[in-house]
Computed example of a mutant assay.
Amino acid sequence: MGATPLAAFLSLALPADMLTTAQGRRWVERFFTGLRALAHRHKVPLAGGDTSESPRETRDANGLILADIVLIGLVPTGKALRRSKARPGDAIYVTGHLGGSAAELAKLLKQQKPAQTKSTRDHPHLYPEPRIAQGRALLTRNLATACIDISDGLSTDLAHICRASGTHAEIDQSALPIHPQARKLTPEAALHAALHGGEDYELLFTAPATTRIPKSIARVPITRIGRLTPKRPATPLLTLITPNSARTPLKPSGWQHFTPPGRQNR
């Protein structure tokens, strides 16, 4: 939303016996090492939270680990980047690349051993990068009319903007910046990952078509992928324009909150 990070709060629930084993203690140490490293990079103190014992399910002898993180930021009154300020005619943009997290997760689920990787842009699922500088630039330079991060999938999160702003949208398939991880998949799977995969945590934002949007912000590329259109009866909320100029309805098929896992659209 364009805010300057202020503080983080962590609520962590662990199995009762986790800290009594060397393996359990190593997991906790590695968890906090990663958390502190990212917090230090963005000057965000861990200001508080809570710890408790997690429930143990009979089918999982190792118990459950539950982590809930709340982040607080500061933004001038009335200036926060919201979902509801987009207008018909606005262009649609994304930061970075799409589909990498879903593609990497699919690969990890097929592996027998945990992945051993370093924090690089080539591993968006294991090491997502918060687009703090990019969000701040969109706000301070008055570039964006609406903004959301792509956590549930491009199709679902763009639908959130459209519903909040009272618009429809068209996406140019050939313009989608597909992540190299996703390009290793079949073309159909790569497109599905880019449109619906989610957890890319890139910024999806809109801006007036006449606004000059830079090609990159803080070394992260910006790509124009479509436009908003007026809301009209009997027309789809989202339309995908294929490389041969065909127009097909695009159903929001990313993560649906409060929907049972077996009934998700993915």
Rank of each mutant, 00 (worst) to 15 (best):
M1C: 12
M1F: 12
P5S: 08
A7N: 15
A7D: 15
A8V: 14
L10T: 15
L12E: 11
L12I: 13
L12F: 15
L12Y: 13
L14S: 09
A16Q: 13
T21A: 04
Q23K: 10
V28W: 01
E29A: 12
R30P: 00
F31E: 02
F32R: 02
R41N: 14
R41L: 15
H42M: 06
H42W: 15
V44Q: 05
A47H: 07
T51Q: 10
R56M: 03
R56K: 13
E57A: 13
L66I: 13
A67F: 04
D68F: 10
I69S: 06
G73L: 05
V75M: 07
P76W: 12
A80D: 14
K85E: 14
K85R: 14
P88A: 09
T95I: 10
T95G: 09
H97E: 11
G99K: 04
S101I: 06
A102M: 07
A103C: 03
A103G: 03
A103F: 01
E104T: 00
A106N: 07
L109R: 01
L109I: 00
Q111R: 02
T117F: 00
K118L: 05
S119A: 12
S119T: 01
T120E: 00
H123M: 00
P130T: 13
R131C: 07
I132P: 14
A133W: 15
Q134D: 13
Q134G: 13
L139A: 12
A146Q: 00
I148Q: 00
S151L: 05
T156P: 08
D157T: 06
L158E: 03
A159F: 05
I161M: 06
C162K: 10
S165K: 14
G166D: 14
G166Q: 10
T167N: 15
S174D: 11
I178R: 10
I178N: 02
Q181E: 08
R183K: 09
L185E: 11
L185K: 07
P187H: 02
E188R: 10
H192G: 05
L195F: 08
L195V: 12
H196V: 02
H196M: 01
G197S: 06
E199L: 10
D200A: 02
L204T: 01
T206A: 08
T206E: 04
A218C: 03
R219D: 14
V220I: 14
R224M: 11
L228P: 06
L228G: 09
L228S: 05
T229F: 04
R232S: 05
P233Y: 03
P233W: 04
A234Y: 09
P236G: 09
T239D: 08
I241L: 11
T242G: 06
N244H: 09
S245Y: 11
S245Q: 13
R247N: 11
P249D: 07
G254V: 09
F258C: 08
T259M: 13
P261E: 06
G262L: 11
G262M: 04
R263G: 01
Q264W: 01
R266C: 08
